[in-house]
Computed example of a mutant assay.
Amino acid sequence: MGKVLVLGGTRYFGKRLVNLLLREGAHDVTVATRGLTEAEFDGPVNRLTVDRSDETSLAKAAEAGPWDIVYDNICYSPNEALAAVRAFQGRVGRYVMTSTLSVYGFGKSPAVENDVNPYEYAWGAGERTDMDYGEGKRQAEAVFFQQAGFPVAAMRIPIVLGPDDYTRRLHFHVERIMNGTPIGLPNLAAEMSFISSAETADFLHWLGTGTDLAGPVNASSDGALTISELLGLIEGITGKRAIVLPEEEAGPENESPFGVPSSWVLDISKAKAAGYRFGKVMDWMPDLVGQIVEGKA
Rank of each mutant, 00 (worst) to 15 (best):
L233Q: 11
R241D: 05
E253L: 07
E127V: 04
P182W: 07
M285E: 10
K280L: 09
I177M: 05
L22A: 13
L58F: 07
H205T: 05
M97W: 08
M178Q: 10
N19I: 12
P110V: 10
M1N: 08
R47N: 03
R47A: 11
W284S: 10
T129Q: 11
G105L: 04
Y104A: 04
Q147P: 01
K60H: 10
G275A: 08
Y104N: 05
A224P: 14
M155D: 05
A148W: 06
T226F: 10
G162F: 15
L161I: 15
V96R: 04
P151Q: 09
Y121R: 03
N218T: 09
E141V: 06
N46M: 06
G210C: 01
V174S: 05
R52L: 12
R168N: 09
D51V: 10
P163R: 00
S99C: 03
T211E: 12
A59Q: 02
E135G: 00
D287R: 14
D132Q: 10
E135Y: 04
E294C: 05
N79L: 06
P261K: 03
L101W: 10
G239R: 10
I177D: 02
R86M: 00
L58P: 01
F144P: 09
D130H: 11
F278R: 02
P246N: 01
A111P: 09
L5P: 10
G65M: 08
R86V: 02
N114C: 04
N46V: 07
L20Y: 09
G9C: 06
T100C: 08
E63I: 03
